[in-house]
Design a protein around this nucleic acid. Structure first.
Length: 152
DNA sequence: GCCAACGTTGGC
DNA sequence: GCCAACGTTGGC
């Protein structure tokens, strides 16, 4: 069982949006970064828990927990010319991009902000707090997971 | 809205 | 295979 963190802009798709979906489940599509793609394709397993992170907003931070309910499969939004994330180089016979499905688990009692996370000595090695890191999906160690939850 | 960081593209 | 140009991310 692994832990992860996934970023989303709340204006586009927030934790509340996920909670309001039928079955509280949604495909995590539109990721167009190879590192993130590889993690969804190879490493994210059924039942893995994920921190839901709000980026590019008033209070950037971790707002909830979600879970992987379907492992990596082709992201068909890449095939749709009308889609914002259309990629003409992704061929249906050899899809370039992958996605997983996630389900709402719960919101945190409070937002644990990026600002706060950056002050913690325990998290100096956490990818999220490294300057200039733009990865939208990243692994979280058991120790990091437990520590962050202890802040709640 | 600005801009630093960084990934990708493409000419050579 | 190098690297400049360009586009995107995301904090502020």
């Amino acid at each position: 069982m692994n832990y992860w963190l996934m970023k989303s802009e709340p204006d586009t798709f927030s934790i509340d949006d996920l909670a309001n979906r039928p079955a509280q489940t949604e495909p995590w599509d539109g990721v167009r970064n190879y590192q993130a793609r590889n993690m969804m394709r190879d490493d994210m397993k059924l039942g893995d828990l994920v921190f839901f992170y709000h980026s590019n907003c008033t209070e950037a931070g971790i707002v909830g927990i979600i879970e992987v309910v379907k492992e990596g499969y082709p992201d068909c939004s890449a095939f749709d010319p009308e889609d914002k994330h259309f990629d003409p180089k992704s061929d249906k016979s050899k899809p370039r991009w992958m996605r997983v499905d996630v389900r709402y688990v719960r919101k945190l009692a409070r937002t644990i902000s990026l600002k706060e996370l950056k002050t913690k000595a325990e998290l100096t090695d956490f990818t999220l707090v490294k300057n200039g890191n733009r990865l939208s999906i990243m692994p979280v160690s058991q120790a990091q997971w437990d520590f962050i939850l202890s802040l709640e």
